[in-house]
Design a protein around this nucleic acid. Sequence first.
DNA 1: GCAAAAGTGTTGGCGTTACACCCATGA
DNA 2: TCATGGGTGTAACGCCAACACTTTTGC
Lengths: 226, 226
Amino acid sequence: MLIAIDCIIFGFDGAVLKLLLFKRKIRPEKGRWSLLGGFVKQDEDLESGAGRILYNLTGLTNVFVEQIMTAGKVGRDPVERTISVVYFALINILDQGQEALNAHNAQWINLDDKPNLIFDHDEMVSKALEWLRYKAALHPLGFELLPERFTIPQLQNLYEAIYSMRLDRRNFNRKIHSTNLLIDTGEKDPLSNTKKATLYRLDKDRYNNKFDSFWHFMPHPGNEKG
Amino acid sequence: MLIAIDCIIFGFDGAVLKLLLFKRKIRPEKGRWSLLGGFVKQDEDLESGAGRILYNLTGLTNVFVEQIMTAGKVGRDPVERTISVVYFALINILDQGQEALNAHNAQWINLDDKPNLIFDHDEMVSKALEWLRYKAALHPLGFELLPERFTIPQLQNLYEAIYSMRLDRRNFNRKIHSTNLLIDTGEKDPLSNTKKATLYRLDKDRYNNKFDSFWHFMPHPGNEKG
DNA sequence: GCAAAAGTGTTGGCGTTACACCCATGA
DNA sequence: TCATGGGTGTAACGCCAACACTTTTGC
């Protein structure tokens, strides 16, 4: 029995949610799209393995990584019985260059345009998206996908992408500010042709301390009864 | 590398939350307390493995089981590198007899009196409890721990045990009823010396359909800001 | 000055907490 | 009839969704 790690890597370019996928260079299923993965080494922890795999592809460390499930169906890998521990990672697309990606046949792909993946990787992506939605509704997870300095409209775009819904600008603003997790950098986003949005950065200490508190980032309009 | 399954089995006797543990009959760590576990068979899915292990110990099928994590630290099992997929199960204590337990050296132990367990099993229990609290705050999970017919005070006791806090009887009542998940059996709980509580049963269909909705079973009093 | 996007204020509805009151039962 | 616990009602508060208005910028 083999133990593998597969990584679901979410990224955000400011407009749509993306997935980092790569085209297999080896058999089986050569040429098809797949999650990034690898086998667990004899002397490494699972987390380390996930970190290693991410580092090799993106060159990034200090990435938000979380274990979300372990897939172990008997026939999931047609070649040999393989148990796969699935991690999901949130990274800021801009942080990481194109070269490493090319070297690995990797590519950012819009979540909406996702091709079918090998094995049970589609299921894994579904689970991960479900998980992301679940968690981001209650915890200030979104910041992980943004650059160090970001605007509130950017954050709102992100949440809208995650949930495929439009949010009210004003309520969203107040909700985010009420977390007291933002620090005004005093600067403005130079882009955009209209009123420039304020650039904020995350209050890391508060973020770490309060990450597990229950916020309510998504609106919950009239609960239907019955 | 070996693949194991460990099961954290929660039970509720009407007053306190319990854990089903057993005393190891084999080396290593013979005689110490441990979670119930076993190795994954070559031809069985992970879920099936968890089900098999649970069935062998409790004789129960149709148990609420959920995968919560996979532990894979290098030295966690001192004998051989072992990856353990952890499941947690919620069962109604009364459903299951004493014989099977004795045969396996197993015993229900109050969560508060939990002895130290072998390997990293203590961590697993912490994670499971955290998970239980997280989930039970938002989803109608508690019913799994109660007999088929139960009273609202029983359910309240359960929630109080899970969160180690007292809840307001009246608000709890309304909250539970507002879920529309309860069916009045028309009967009363014969026990108790005072006014007999109404016995309800779960509306299974609604329960399955709405399990993933976000309720708020726990009170959330004045959010401290700052 | 106009359009477009960022940011601030206000209000009304509704869910929820906190609390008072009645009911049923056995001793 | 009293104590104990189950069950219902209600009112004030606070949060939040919905909406109007002001500000800034580039053309």
